[in-house]
């Protein structure tokens, strides 16, 4: 069979399944992510959201199914590979190494070095400085490129992780519950960073338990339930209240109703 034509989409998953030792975590997932589209991925614990994300980042390989990225059929067999493709993940609170300085985190795994592997520290610091002041808009004098990450607030950490992904030209940013355990004002900061992804013409998959966090920033909702996609809604076609009602229906009756 000839490959599917997916040239107008950034990422297309076709019939992706994944099982772990006979237990299926994902069953026949079909998902499309457009260029410059923010997709909200919702679903209860155990719905398969994390497994899906791990397949896209190359942590797991799918048992069956095809992945198309920018129109090309690809296999993602490692995290390194997904990053080369321009797919980047921002994980809850684990995105950054807490005890390391901002400049070390910014270039983690992508160090600027000479050909002997020695770091161009000055250049890395200057770039980080630029990113902090212009990109993220840090004005606080207390935070410098030499500051340890743990001196930042939760929202600022997520901001750094998102800015880092954008700086390295990620086309698809996977946000795995970035607002979990954050205060209201910190959550707002993260949501602003998500809007930034949209403004810069990039795409994202935003996983969250909170419809209230997702609704203002996403273009489309994908609802997962027990390893399947239970429904998809464009934001224009559904109000926040209707969406929440559907989620409740899903929990109560197993259908969106």
């Amino acid at each position: 069979m000839a490959g599917k034509d997916c040239s107008d989409k950034l990422l297309v998953l076709v019939n992706i399944s994944k099982s772990f030792g006979g237990v299926s975590a994902l069953r026949g997932i079909n998902l499309e992510i457009g260029y410059n589209e923010i997709v909200g991925l919702v679903g209860d614990n155990g719905a398969g959201k994390s497994t899906l994300i791990k397949i896209i980042t190359g942590v797991h390989t799918p048992t069956t199914g095809e992945i198309y990225y920018k129109g090309q059929r690809i296999t993602i067999h490692s995290v390194r590979r997904s990053r080369e493709l321009g797919i980047e993940t921002v994980y809850q609170e684990r995105a950054l190494a807490d005890q390391q300085s901002l400049w070390r985190n910014m270039f983690a795994g992508r160090e600027e070095t000479n050909r002997f592997g020695f770091l161009r520290v000055r250049r890395e610091k200057e770039e980080t400085e630029r990113l902090l002041r212009q990109y993220i808009g840090f004005t606080s004098k207390a935070i410098t490129v030499d500051s340890e990450v743990k001196s930042l607030s939760g929202g600022e950490k997520q901001g750094i992780a998102i800015a880092r992904a954008l700086y390295f030209n990620a086309d698809l940013i996977l946000l795995d519950e970035p607002t979990v355990a954050l205060s209201l004002s910190e959550t707002q900061k993260v949501l602003d960073f998500v809007l930034d992804i949209k403004k810069r013409g990039k795409s994202a998959i935003f996983i969250s338990h909170s419809i209230y966090h997702l609704y203002p920033v996403v273009d489309r909702f994908v609802i997962m339930d027990r390893g399947r996609i239970a429904g998809e809604f464009k934001k224009e076609s559904i109000t926040q209240e209707e969406l929440i009602e559907k989620m409740f229906n899903l929990v109560r009756t197993g259908t969106l109703g």
Binding site: T57, A97, E111, F118, L119
Partner: peptide
């Protein structure tokens, strides 16, 4: 302090999850 190897040792020692997601082996 000035080499990629040391940078990776620091990152892995600090946060394995983060290091893994940043593509460090």
């Amino acid at each position: 302090n000035r080499h990629r190897f040391g940078a990776h040792v620091l990152l892995v020692g600090d946060n394995k999850d983060s290091a893994l997601m940043m593509g460090i082996e």
